[in-house]
């Protein structure tokens, strides 16, 4: 709890992480918001109830107008295909091409999530060991890129990875390759770009679980004669596994809906669902198909969020065995 508080109060950017993290662990929702501090008489409680409803009203009206109604109209549109209510859905489900796009998006999200988790684990360990100014600098490096537009970061990667870019020049200079490698507009470019954007989201839950590990358990294991590898495999890793799986699920979910990075750094033939939706709307003007593809994606995401808690518990239960 204390470490969670740390970025809740000290890092504005942590809020974005915290917000997304809270989605996965509903139990924590209560902790973000303070409970009513003043207990009063019944009349005052009723007053407070209507007061708070009044204060929440502008937000509720806004969300209704700009979020709920537009999505409801999109849902209605998805059942408005030319050949009956489910024609748009069945067209997406039956087409070999669209199935491939969905499969492609899922594979991409899984590989990106795996890469981020692998890179985050040692980094989170380092962060959990740091203190003082070193820790501040490390958190700056972690949080500053979160503020920068995805577009600027994508631009940077194009400049860095292009045929005559610094990476290729360095590889040629060291004699590691005889002709410049193509690092862009393929799955390598997409992975680099997406891992760069999503890494902090995987790192923070892992860091939180590492800070919560009781050091005495490691000492106990050590003094009982376990090798460092055994201590890691039997004690440290199982204890940090919930953070790891939370990070994985979080990155996986966010990667599913990614648009800018795959569109700019990827190959045109490796379409993702977001690119397909954009294509339906802007190139083919096939609105029911766009709506149906959107809701198929949302359905998967909601199902995953709903089962994420159970999933995470399941994984940690497996590990505890």
């Amino acid at each position: 709890m204390a470490t969670r508080e740390y970025y809740f109060t000290s890092m504005t950017c942590g809020v974005e992480y915290a917000t997304r993290f809270e989605i996965l662990s509903k139990d924590n929702l209560k902790e973000i918001m303070p409970s009513a501090p003043l207990a009063g008489s019944r009349d005052r409680r009723v007053d407070r109830f209507w007061g708070s409803v009044l204060l929440l009203l502008p937000l509720a009206a806004f969300l209704l107008m700009v979020f709920v109604v537009p999505l409801a109209m999109l849902l209605k549109l998805s059942f408005g295909g030319a050949g009956g209510p489910f024609s748009a859905y069945s067209e997406i489900a039956s087409s070999e091409v669209y199935r491939k796009v969905f499969l492609n998006t899922f594979t991409l999200a899984i590989t990106v999530a795996s890469c981020t988790v692998l890179l985050s684990y040692p980094t989170a360990y380092m962060l959990s060991q740091l203190s003082g100014w070193k820790r501040s600098v490390a958190f700056w490096c972690l949080f500053f890129p979160l503020w920068i537009s995805v577009l600027v970061r994508t631009f940077s990667w194009i400049v860095i990875l292009e045929k005559s870019g610094p990476v290729n020049r360095a590889l040629l200079g060291m004699g590691l390759t005889s002709s410049p490698l193509s690092l862009l507009f393929n799955s390598f470019g997409v992975h680099v770009g997406m891992v760069h954007v999503l890494l902090p989201y995987a790192l923070l839950p892992i860091f939180t679980s590492m800070k919560a590990v009781d050091r005495r358990l490691l000492l106990a294991s050590d003094s009982l004669g376990a090798s460092p590898l055994t201590t890691f495999g039997r004690i440290y890793f199982p204890l940090t596994l919930p953070g790891l799986s939370t990070g994985f699920v979080l990155v996986f979910l966010m990667a599913l809906g990614f648009y800018i990075t795959p569109a700019m750094l990827g190959a045109a033939q490796h379409m993702t669902i977001s690119m397909l939706i954009d294509n339906f709307v802007n190139e083919r003007l096939a609105w029911p198909l766009a709506a149906a593809a959107s809701f198929s994606l949302l359905f998967v995401i909601v199902a995953l969020v709903a089962s994420a808690n159970r999933l995470v518990n399941f994984v940690s239960a497996m590990a505890a065995r």
């Binding site: 997304r20 929440l56 509720a60 969300l63 999505l71 994606l297």
Partner: peptide
């Protein structure tokens, strides 16, 4: 209320874009 407030972050931005455009 908190669940509703957070939900625009769960829905993919591309989907919100298409809905609002429409």
């Amino acid at each position: 209320a908190l669940g509703l407030i957070i939900s625009p972050l769960v829905v993919p931005v591309i989907m919100i874009s298409v809905a609002l455009y429409y």
